[in-house]
Design a binder for these strands. Structure first.
Length: 565
RNA sequence: GCGUCCGUAGCUCAGCCGGAUAGAGCACCAGACUUCUAAUCUGGGGGUCACAGGUUCGAAUCCUGUCGGACGUGCCA
């Protein structure tokens, strides 16, 4: 990775000049203006105080030292002490040729468990599940890419009060025909009906409570129904996940952790982390922790969300060699996870626990609500996306055969939906907008996919005309347009690392967009196939490298590419 | 009340572990297809980075306060 390479050189130079105490991190960054070279370091200004020297003096000494390095064309001091570096052509070409695959970090001890998507049984997945699902999936791919062992888990909501209601509703109102055709939707429908009728008939909630108790006591009839609900829901989710190309290693529901909860309660009591309060078992926090008390066990003995979460952590610790657990959920659950993480710490469980949050998805006029019936189902969103993409393919590329068009429509439509979520870093709420989510122009997945397809077409044309890339590096980066693209390509591996560090796929998305923009500028202004062979080959290789990065990068976002579109 | 997050161009958002003239996309205006895919490219207009203080050589970025919005706040998940 070029950044670490350059940082190492700067650190080493600083140590040679100023001794060990200057070994502090030397951060470099890409310049925002080519007037200032390719990369800049602010080392001189940030370390001036510690070194008790004038920043310009430090900068100029460092500049002299760095000028000896063969990778720089030019190193200069500017302004109050910026060190501006321009890369040597050969170094740049070499880096682009074989430096864009991120260096895998080999020695990761233990697995990273990522917990995302997590739908509730008997409810169709809707757009509200989208962010967790695609962000989680992308993080999984990014961590795997960096050499981590990753376990992807969808933590199903398969236990709780809704099942009492569902059982009652099922026996009263189920439409067998509709159930056969679309089981999960029918379950949702009767659930809504239950909620509505409960307002008039207070007997209903009471009946539901009774059924719930029976279920919890393993009444065979209720248990069979519950299993049926779980089964049909899983079937539907699996279809959706398949379509989205999202795959889990485990999909344990809360019921899976239920048997473990009494042990958790015992441990919490033994270690005096929790204590009794108003009949319930509660964990209290310090004033400065700014957390509300967390109820572990209700006064009626029932367990709660936090209990289940703790049991889940304990289970994973026993089952795997864990290094880290990452939860991808919306921001509403932030304080819940803070509580759970604190409790885990007090129990002496030693993992890195991370909560990755994002804002809620809603509508212009308020929230999605199952009861209001204004939720947008994920299924519908996907099919609308594919339909719109198909229209564009028909229009733009009518010569494609039907099978290819179908494939392109799927890849582009789904890509657009995923990218719409992955390309932003919003912790504030987002408003759902069909046209925005299904845009195929500008900063979108189709733009990146189009750029890739264009290069593939170019490659085919090159092959047809007998222009073949030889083994080895034929890059000859001579003009500013090519150079700008090359530098952007070099940023890719670093962006993957940053994305992993910050749990933010949008960093990768942004880099890919920058690369694609620069490539398209290059493509529109510099011919490839019409040039003499050395130039043609160099530009072809630059194009092929770009395609490689786009493909790999899009895969990290869970987005596929097509060879023509 | 308290806590968390947010406020950047007409709209949607990047940038936020401080760095040089604050960037994209959409929309708008003007251009580029007999030339490797125009889902593209080039140029243009458009900003008190909510407001007020503070720290700093330097603040959209860090700190404090104010205003505005969202969410969470003891027995749901």
């Amino acid at each position: 990775m070029i950044e670490t390479d350059l940082e190492k050189r700067i650190s080493a130079a600083a140590v040679r000049l100023f001794g060990k105490e200057a070994a502090q991190e030397a951060r470099i960054q890409k310049t925002n203006n080519s007037l200032f070279g390719d990369y800049q370091s602010n080392f001189a200004m940030s370390s001036a105080r510690a070194l008790k020297r004038n920043p310009r003096e430090i900068a100029s000494a460092l500049t002299d030292e760095l000028s000896k390095e063969k990778c720089f064309e030019k190193v200069e001091v500017a302004g109050p002490g910026f060190i501006n570096m321009t890369l040597k052509k050969e170094y740049l070409e070499e880096q682009v040729y074989d430096g864009i695959a991120p260096a895998k970090e080999i020695s990761h001890k233990g697995a990273v468990i990522i917990d995302y998507s997590s739908p509730n049984i008997a409810k169709p997945m809707h757009v509200g599940h989208l962010r967790s699902t695609v962000i989680g999936d992308s993080l999984k791919r990014i961590f795997q890419f960096l050499g981590y062992q990753v376990i992807a888990d969808s933590h199903l909501g398969d236990w709780g009060t809704q099942f009492g209601k569902l059982i009652v509703a099922y026996r009263r109102w189920l439409d067998p025909e509709a159930y056969k055709k679309n089981p999960v939707e029918e379950l949702e429908k009767i659930y809504i009906r239950f909620e509505q009728e409960s307002e008039k008939d207070p007997g209903l909630p009471e009946a539901a409570r009774k059924e719930l108790v029976k279920l919890q006591n393993h009444d065979p009839d209720n248990l069979a129904l519950w299993e049926e609900f779980v089964q049909i829901s899983l079937e539907e989710y699996s279809r959706l996940y398949q379509e989205l190309d999202i795959h889990f290693d485990t999909m344990y529901g809360e019921s899976h952790y239920h048997p473990l909860m009494p042990d958790i309660i015992r441990e919490l009591k033994e270690k005096q982390v929790a204590r009794e309060s108003e009949g319930a078992l509660v964990v209290f926090f310090e004033e400065e922790e700014n957390l509300h008390p967390c109820i572990i066990q209700k006064k009626d003995g029932a367990f709660l969300y936090a209990t289940s979460e703790l049991a889940c952590i304990a289970f994973r610790a026993r089952q795997y060699e864990v290094n880290r657990m990452v939860y991808v959920t919306d921001a509403r659950q932030e304080s819940h996870f803070k509580q759970v993480f604190k409790i885990a710490m007090r129990l002496g469980w030693d993992f890195e626990l991370v909560h990755v949050t994002f804002g809620l998805m809603g509508l212009k006029d308020g929230h999605f609500s199952t009861r209001k019936g204004n939720v947008i189902k994920l299924k519908d969103l996907i099919s609308e996306a594919v339909t719109r993409a198909r229209q564009v393919v028909d229009e733009k590329n009518p010569d494609l055969n039907d099978t290819d068009k179908k494939e392109v429509a799927r890849v582009v439509g789904i890509g657009a939906v995923k990218y719409a979520d992955l390309s932003q870093n919003r912790t504030s709420n987002v408003i759902f907008d069909w046209d925005k989510m299904l845009s195929f122009e500008g900063n979108t997945a189709p733009y990146l996919q189009y750029t890739y397809a264009r290069i593939q077409s170019l490659r085919r044309k090159a092959e047809e005309s007998g222009l073949l890339l030889p083994e080895g590096n034929v890059l000859d980066i001579v003009n500013e347009t090519e150079r700008t693209l090359a530098i952007s390509l070099l940023q890719f591996p670093y962006s993957v690392h940053k994305a992993a560090e910050a749990y933010r796929p949008n960093i990768v998305a942004e880099q890919l967009f920058d690369i694609a923009q620069k490539y398209n500028t290059f493509y529109n202004s510099l011919p490839v196939l019409k040039e003499d062979e050395p130039t043609a080959l160099s530009r072809l290789q630059l194009s092929v490298k770009t395609a490689e990065v786009l493909k790999v990068g899009l895969r990290l976002l869970g987005i596929k590419t097509v060879e023509r579109m």
